[in-house]
Design a binder for these strands. Structure first.
Ligand SMILES: [Mn+2]
Ligand SMILES: [Mn+2]
Ligand SMILES: [Zn+2]
Ligand SMILES: [Zn+2]
Lengths: 155, 155
DNA sequence: CGTCCAAATGCAACTGAGTTGCATATAATT
DNA sequence: AATTATATGCAACTCAGTTGCATTTGGACG
């Protein structure tokens, strides 16, 4: 398999049979250079800083087009906001897990962590993708008293 | 551990040290009787059908209070809408998985499916809860041609 | 019982991520 | 260069969830 980071945005778009516009190339470049999943707003910021501003509707529509093509995933939602990332660090049937910190609210990509696929699915269900979200305390926050969800008084 | 379904809403609220109001008892009863996670809107509908209408703000604030107490979980978000369910069918460190169908969009609770906890977490991360979301085709939809995400042309 | 107050409720107005319709611009094909 | 399906920009919109504030009430205490 070819490594996306060694390919130009243009060639990647071509290989996915997507139209190659300046806006899409810029969005793709920003996703290629990011270690984390990004929101529309974060992408817009970075585009503006590179003097390549794009309308937010265009960003959403480009991401949706990338999504349909399988170039990006909607990695996770936080505070009702979608975070997008390139699909190249995800396995065929499983995205890499994400870890959210109860204390600081940050979310981390954990491409090196793998979780076995679910087993014992009821007959008739066809599993295509498994997405795992981990919650807890990140290295920066585990010292401080945290706002961890309460335990049940009945267990 | 006591079984919530055999307890009255009133006793459950008391054991969680929550104030016992008519609204909270009704919301709790609806969650107890549901096999699936419910949205604010679905809860409001069922309350109205029982002639116990509640303001949506009150429903949201009650759910948030239940959440802080550990009585309910935010099970999953679909189309930016939170789905709430009682925590009593979830393990201490892992919620039961949920399965979403690409074709019909329905989401199913899979309390019988278990996934091993993630291993190989980088040093410093403290895992408190693991949430698993499965995507694919449900028994009703696996016959029809489905809108499954595209494969990468580069792999 | 009645008194009291922190907490719960209802209502109206608000927030903001994401969507839609439509006019205009442009990538890719010929 | 001409053509056309697709991409873009802009303004207006949607709607789940939140906030401020006035009013009500659960539950503790006597
Ligand atoms: Mn990621
Ligand atoms: Mn569930
Ligand atoms: Zn943290
Ligand atoms: Zn289905």
């Amino acid at each position: 398999m070819s490594h996306w980071r060694e390919m130009s945005p243009r060639r990647i778009l071509q290989s996915f049979a997507l139209r190659c516009t300046p806006g899409r190339k810029s969005i793709l470049q920003i996703l290629l250079q990011s270690e984390q999943a990004l929101t529309q707003d974060q992408i817009a910021d970075r585009l503006a800083r590179r003097r390549r501003p794009l309308n937010k509707v265009t960003i959403y529509r480009s991401l949706e087009c990338f999504l349909r093509a399988g170039l990006v995933h909607q990695a996770y939602q936080q505070d009702r906001i979608w975070h997008y990332e390139l699909a190249h660090r995800c396995g065929k049937t499983q995205c890499h897990p994400h870890f959210s910190c109860y204390e600081c609210g940050r979310t981390f990509c954990l491409p090196e962590v793998s979780v076995p696929l679910a087993t014992g699915l009821r007959a008739g269900f066809v599993l295509v993708r498994q997405k795992v979200r981990l919650e807890g305390l990140c290295p920066d926050c585990q010292q401080q008293p945290a706002d961890v969800p309460a335990e049940s008084p009945l267990s």
